[in-house]
Design a protein around this nucleic acid. Sequence first.
DNA 1: CCATCAATTGCAACCCAGTTGCAATTGATG
DNA 2: CATCAATTGCAACTGGGTTGCAATTGATGG
Lengths: 161, 161
Amino acid sequence: MNNLISDPSLTLARTRLRGTGARVTPARVRVLAVLMEAGQPLSHHEVEQILSPAAELDRVTLYRVLDWLVQQRLAHRVAGSDRAWRFSVAGDQPSLEARGGLKAGGAKVMHERHAHFHCNDCGKVYCLDSIDAKALNVPVPIGYRPETLELTVKGYCAHCN
Amino acid sequence: MNNLISDPSLTLARTRLRGTGARVTPARVRVLAVLMEAGQPLSHHEVEQILSPAAELDRVTLYRVLDWLVQQRLAHRVAGSDRAWRFSVAGDQPSLEARGGLKAGGAKVMHERHAHFHCNDCGKVYCLDSIDAKALNVPVPIGYRPETLELTVKGYCAHCN
DNA sequence: CCATCAATTGCAACCCAGTTGCAATTGATG
DNA sequence: CATCAATTGCAACTGGGTTGCAATTGATGG
Ligand SMILES: [Mn+2]
Ligand SMILES: [Mn+2]
Ligand SMILES: [Zn+2]
Ligand SMILES: [Zn+2]
């Protein structure tokens, strides 16, 4: 059973989850493992598809697990052009210590350092890790306080081109 | 009646609409006039609010008029962070003649030359016209064909800061 | 002016991503 | 192994947007 998620991924997922100090539940383990095996950000629906051959996971629980993973900074979330969120496992980025101008503690520190590619045909989202969006210097009008930056390229992916 | 839309705007809207060769209907005139008077991209809901004191406009008709304006290139559409589209009147941008690599005729030529600012508090979207997003040279992996580029700054607007 | 008719509109029903309230279940702890 | 807060499942709901279809109407040209 669970032939779509490899055992090493499940084990690694469990380890990372233990690191949060919160409960290590099967739902969290399986969802995190799926994200770890995916090479790209997955939508709620896509995760559901991958999960379903094994035991079903309630839609709402999946939504909650995904949000929780983002809160715990184990995953990050990017808006797809189809108005559905995509989730991908957080890379081994540095701890993203507060950069100038951020108000709260670690709450909503800039998480998106790189750009994304959205395929207009298949809808998939790819991370363009080579691009450091943060390096861009985008001037905003006086009185505006920028916090995060999103750079999205839309077009056709290698598979749909 | 219609005290929220100025007559000059209505007249200008009618003129622009006549230029399309398609029917000049009250719905189209009023919606385009609203967009022309707004200094920023408006959501479907925001347009509805501005319109309602005068005669109501059916939700579906409003959706269709907005989409139609975008097709006619009289407006452009930007995704808000709240997963609602925002619409703004198309500026007097040059005709955006085909740039290298575009396939079809005038169908989906790059429309977004500038960046946008999304307020995390009030949700409003502002155009950062001074930024030419197209000038950015974003490298994509081989096999990927980029078409449009979106640059979004999120933070707090002058009013919410 | 008026008849004509395709384009446009209004209405009702629907879709889909995501959220909320609450009772039942369960992971961690001692 | 009892305890209990955290987590889950279920049902109902929200909000933005879409679809099908019958009724209305802007432009045309006679
Ligand atoms: Mn990414
Ligand atoms: Mn704009
Ligand atoms: Zn694709
Ligand atoms: Zn604001």
